[in-house]
């Protein structure tokens, strides 16, 4: 297998099964996916890494029919409340992209997939969710 790299640095692919990892503010418990200067909730500057769960629930979604060039449509964009804490935005795969199949509150689980390969042969690994059952 060639070299792989996560699409974003909050996706861990080389620490056991793939999972998301957040910055947790020590004082307030707020979770962030981006590089932080301080905690926008409590104001503190101490953070620790927190491994997030791989299952969750769809709290909102949209089905994108007109998107940016190069990205196939339609696709489902979902906001997922992760079991154990945290909310993330991702695509919802392995379900027909229509409101008859995608439901608010549906249980989902995370998966990873190759999103592209660069000119050095490095594969970008992305994450998404799919129905849990």
């Amino acid at each position: 297998m060639g070299k792989q790299i996560p699409i974003v640095d909050y996706l861990a692919i080389d620490d056991g099964p793939p999972h998301l990892v957040a910055w947790e503010a020590v004082d307030s418990g707020a979770l962030y996916f981006d590089r932080r200067n301080a905690d926008a909730n409590g104001g503190g500057t101490e953070f620790r890494r927190k491994k997030l769960g791989t299952t969750g629930m769809v709290r909102s979604f949209t089905i994108v029919n007109r998107g940016v060039p190069g990205v196939p449509v339609p696709y489902v964009s979902a906001l997922v409340d992760i079991d154990g804490g945290g909310t993330v935005k991702a695509n919802l795969l392995n379900t027909p992209p229509d409101p008859e199949h995608v439901k608010l509150g549906m249980a989902v689980k995370m998966l990873t997939f190759p999103a592209g390969t660069d000119d050095d042969g490095t594969e970008a690994i992305a994450f998404a969710f799919e129905p849990a059952s």
């Binding site: 790299i5 996560p6 699409i7 974003v8 640095d9 909050y10 996916f33 981006d34 590089r35 949209t62 994108v64 998107g67 940016v68 990205v71 449509v73 696709y75 964009s77 979902a78 906001l79 935005k89 991702a90 695509n91 999103a115 592209g116 660069d118 000119d119 050095d120 490095t122 970008a124 992305a126 994450f127 998404a128």
Partner: peptide, 23 residues
């Protein structure tokens, strides 16, 4: 095209449509 993490999320490519939508 060479994947290099950049920005506050360390993204290596455009994520619009891959990690949900921001449109």
């Amino acid at each position: 095209k060479v994947y290099e993490p950049s920005g506050r999320y360390g993204s290596v490519m455009q994520v619009e449509g891959v990690l949900g939508t921001g449109l």
